[in-house]
């Protein structure tokens, strides 16, 4: 929880406070009804707290989010897939969503995204911000944000293909 919060808020001290608050709120509230896992319930509270903090502040980081486009090594000079990098057929991947082993690999792949890429991707796909809001908060242009999202998705895809699909774990 702390790692995720620190990633989103870019402030370790603030992150500790927010996690502490979320856990306190969880303990003091009698809302938890035993349905669903306790972890996901505390995470739901935490997620809302993070969203509040992000929306409240208006920061303009100067760090650069755009590094070299390393996606490029998947394509040849004409922009077509290199044979070794061409996405394979995953069959019916939805069948894996109930597979614990899948989630282990998926979370490892998420944790392997570069920090700046992960921050944008998780704001969009985990916290559920519109990309416009992500751009405003992080002071990114639309096209920067598209490049980062594309990079994050492509890296996740590649990581899953190498470590899960080709690892023969496809169910």
């Amino acid at each position: 929880m702390l790692r995720f919060t620190t990633l989103q808020l870019r402030d370790a001290v603030l992150a500790e406070d927010v996690v502490h608050e979320a856990i306190s709120a969880a303990i003091s509230s009698a809302q938890y009804n035993g349905r669903g896992s306790l972890k996901s319930w505390v995470f739901a509270i935490l997620r809302n707290k993070i969203i509040d903090v992000i929306r409240e502040r208006n920061r303009h980081p100067t760090e650069s989010f755009i590094e070299d486009d390393e996606n490029d090594d998947a394509f040849d000079g004409k922009g077509h897939w290199k044979k070794t990098h061409k996405p394979s057929d995953w069959g019916q991947p939805e069948n894996n969503l109930d597979n614990e082993q899948f989630w282990v690999v998926f979370e490892i792949c998420l944790n392997h995204l570069p920090v700046n890429t992960a921050r944008v991707f998780m704001m969009r796909e985990h916290l559920g911000f519109e990309l416009k809001e992500v751009c405003r908060e992080l002071n990114l242009s639309d096209s920067n944000a598209w490049v980062i999202m594309h990079r994050a998705r492509s890296q996740l895809r590649k990581c899953l293909e190498l470590n899960y699909i080709r690892g023969g774990r496809l169910s």
Binding site: G36, S37, K39, S40, F43, R47, W81, K86, P87, S88, D89, W90, P93, E94, L97, W103, F106, E125, H126, G128, R153, L156, R157, L160, E161
Partner: peptide, 24 residues
């Protein structure tokens, strides 16, 4: 293009997995 068609399906799958991750 089968490569890009696979890529397209996999992108939908990753989005689904991220939604499912929230509920876990």
């Amino acid at each position: 293009c089968s490569g890009c068609s696979n890529y397209n399906k996999q992108m939908s799958f990753i989005r689904k997995a991220m939604q499912k991750l929230r509920e876990r």
